[in-house]
Design a protein around this nucleic acid. Structure first.
Lengths: 193, 193
DNA sequence: AGCGTTCTGTACCGATCGGTACTGTGTTGA
DNA sequence: TCAACACAGTACCGATCGGTACAGAACGCT
């Protein structure tokens, strides 16, 4: 009952995500956010609580929508194909002209491990989740005989994610999709067998 | 003549660097900085101009002092040894318990390429300088026959720096030196020959 | 000694920060 | 038809931001 909301929550979240992505958590002011979301402040606070909570929702959306490439990538038949699809999906996302360069989870907050901020911990948890998904997929690959017995799935997953994060930094510095593709080609030369 | 400065400029810069490193450019307030540097605001402004200029000086010091490992690394006799020393030097720096985890140039500002801020451009220039130094060293290595003719020095340099940046992100998430060492071992498996 | 200069320290500036009280407005259910 | 309710919008809150005016203190030069 009562008056209905005149804006779409998902669309507002999408706009907020772009702002956080481009300016970082600290750099994005509530004025920046409300202008981009095209709603006013009380509406934002009523719908999302506060800035931290809005960012948390934004990060959730990023994981679901922007990191969606991870699902088909993890479904590839071989560990090698998984690695290639993860790297290419990340490079596509990081250089997509429709969104800011780089990765929200890498650039949005400089406050890190030692810091007690909820933002920093949420970002670290987000990255750990991604790493764990790849590691588990590689462990399965090893069990299936798809990876040599002497390979270390955890290290392989760390390696892939390290390149993903590094590409995010390079994309934010202006690297092109083609440059990242060459790095991916070199990265895969380290693959077992 | 006249009254002499009671604090050491280099020491104050070092303290400021730690604050920027840990909190980022936006996250570091002038109060944080003056407290860490143990000077008061007018002294800071008289000595360094303003916050941007202080950060620029801080970045210069980081390049000279913290990135000093690059000089001996680039002086190694083979391209392969150069790559290994760059990676190990970066991993040492990023996990040094005496300084914040990660890399100042990667974490201190989320505002990036498309942004017009001087901070962002200074950081990108800093990273480009590091990449250029490695690329030029690899080009020399190829001219000396130390790298195969079909190898691309620019891509090899991009690859090494990508891993360096990626390790910085992982170090900031809590990765240990040992974990980074395993990633380095895998990284070098992609090396030509 | 006395002066000019350059530092230190307090106290403050306008602007902007994240967050909210309050009034007005549109929609629903009875 | 009208009261109840949840929204939109204005206008504002105290706190903190980067930056500075001004007065007092320490030093070098003559």
């Amino acid at each position: 009952m009562a008056r209905t909301r005149t804006f779409d929550t998902d669309q507002a979240l999408e706009s907020a995500m772009i702002v956080f992505w481009r300016k970082g958590y600290d750099g994005a002011s509530m004025t920046d956010l409300t202008e981009a979301m095209d709603i006013n402040r009380p509406s934002l606070y009523a719908a999302f609580g506060n800035k931290q909570e809005l960012f948390r929702r934004t990060l959730e959306r990023y994981a679901e929508v922007r990191s969606a490439y991870m699902r088909p990538a993890l479904g590839q038949p071989t560990a090698r194909a998984v690695a290639e699809h993860v790297l290419r999906g990340a490079a596509d996302l990081q250089t997509d002209p429709a969104t800011p360069a780089g990765c929200l989870a890498v650039h949005s907050s400089p406050t890190c491990a030692e810091d007690s901020s909820q933002i920093g911990r949420a970002l670290i948890a987000f990255r750990h989740d991604g790493e764990a998904a790849i590691r588990e997929r590689f462990e399965r690959a090893q069990a299936e005989g798809d990876l040599p017995a002497d390979a270390d799935p955890a290290t392989l997953a760390d390696y892939i994610r390290t390149v993903v994060y590094g590409m995010a930094v390079k994309a934010a510095s202006g690297s092109t999709r083609e440059e990242l593709e060459r790095v991916i080609g070199l990265t895969m030369r380290a693959w077992p067998q």
